[in-house]
Design a protein around this nucleic acid. Structure first.
Lengths: 151, 151
DNA sequence: TCCACTTTGCCCCATTTTTAACCACCACCG
DNA sequence: CGGTGGTGGTTAAAAATGGGGCAAAGTGGA
C-alpha cells in the first residue's frame, strides 16, 4: 500500500451536486486521485447515507473491527459478514463520475440534488434535505465542544 | 512535519481590505510565506468569522481535540466529523489573493470590506461591522487583564 | 442449443458553467 | 518619482453536466 495510515486521504469540505437520471455523481475535482478510481460503496446501518471510501480504507475499517476490544469475537464475525455483503464496488468513469446502482439510490433516497460531505479517509453522500436535518442536530454538539476547547 | 510547534507562524496586526465580486481577498504581504500557499478555511462555530490556517496547524488542532481530557470520546468523534466537513481548502493565487467559496462568504457575511485579524498560527476574516462590535467588547477585557498583570 | 431481442453499462462527445492564470493599473509610502 | 502592495478586469483552462451510441450481458422463444 502506498499510503500509510498517517497520510490518510482527507476529503475536505461539503459540496452540493446534481445526480443525473443515470445515477451518476460528479466527484469534486479536488477529491480525485487518479483516473477511473475505484471505491467501495457502503450504506450506513440506517440507510441514511452512502459511505464512499477507497478499498484500502475499507480494509482498514474491517481490521479495526477485528481488533476492537469492546466487540466479542462472535459479534465481530457476524458484523464483518454483513459489512462485506452490504458493500459494493463503484468505479468512476473517465469524466470523474461515480455511477451508483439504481437500488442503492432508491434505498437511500438519492435523486436530483445530493450533498457530498467530506471526512477523513472517506466521504458521505446524502439526500440534501435529510443531510440538513441531521447536520443541525450535530451542530449543538459541535458548538459545545468548540467552547470547551476554545475555538 | 517540518514546522515544530515552537516555530508556529505568527500573523501580526490587523488589516482592512476589500473583497471583490469574485470573492478574492488579498492576504497582507507581510503574512505571505510562499507563492500559491495553501490554507485551510474553517468557519467558527457560530459563523461569525472565518478562520484561516495552514494544513499543519489544522492537523495540530485536530490532534489536540482527540487528546483533550475534557471532551468525551463520543463528542470528540462528532466534533471531528463536523470539523472535517466544515473545513475547506483554499489556495492563494499568484497575486497573493485567497479565493473564498461563494457560500462561505454568504454564511459569514463577507462582502465589500473585510477585516483581517492576526493571531498565533492562524488569522481570522471578519465582516467589518461585526468585527468592530466584537472588538469593542474585547477591549474592555483586555484593559482589565492588562492592569492586573501590569502591562 | 441457437438465435433474435431487450436491457444495461460504459465510453465518448458537446455544452455550459466555474475556476484559475494573467495582465495592467492605481495608489500609497519611502 | 520608483517600487511594492492592493485592486479590477480579461482570457484561457478545467470542471460539471447532459445526451447519444456502441457493445456486452441477460432473456425468452423456437
Amino acid at each position: 500500500m502506498q499510503t500509510p495510515v498517517s497520510a490518510q486521504t482527507f476529503y475536505a469540505g461539503e459540496f452540493q451536486h446534481a445526480i443525473d437520471e443515470k445515477n451518476r455523481i460528479t466527484i469534486p475535482a479536488r477529491w480525485r486521485r487518479d483516473e477511473a478510481e475505484e471505491f467501495i460503496l457502503l450504506p450506513d446501518s440506517q440507510n441514511q447515507f452512502l459511505l464512499v471510501m477507497s478499498p484500502e480504507e475499507f480494509a482498514r475499517m474491517s481490521a479495526s473491527v477485528e481488533q476492537s476490544a469492546s466487540v466479542t469475537a462472535r459479534d465481530g464475525r457476524i458484523f464483518l459478514r454483513q459489512l462485506h455483503s452490504r458493500a459494493q464496488h463503484g468505479i468512476a468513469d473517465k469524466q470523474g463520475r461515480l455511477v451508483l446502482p439504481e437500488e442503492l439510490c432508491r434505498k437511500i433516497g438519492l435523486k436530483g440534488e445530493v450533498a457530498l460531505v467530506g471526512g477523513r479517509g472517506r466521504f458521505e453522500i446524502w439526500n440534501v434535505a435529510r443531510w440538513k436535518r441531521a447536520h443541525e442536530e450535530e451542530t449543538a454538539t459541535y458548538q459545545h465542544v468548540a467552547n470547551v476547547i476554545g475555538l
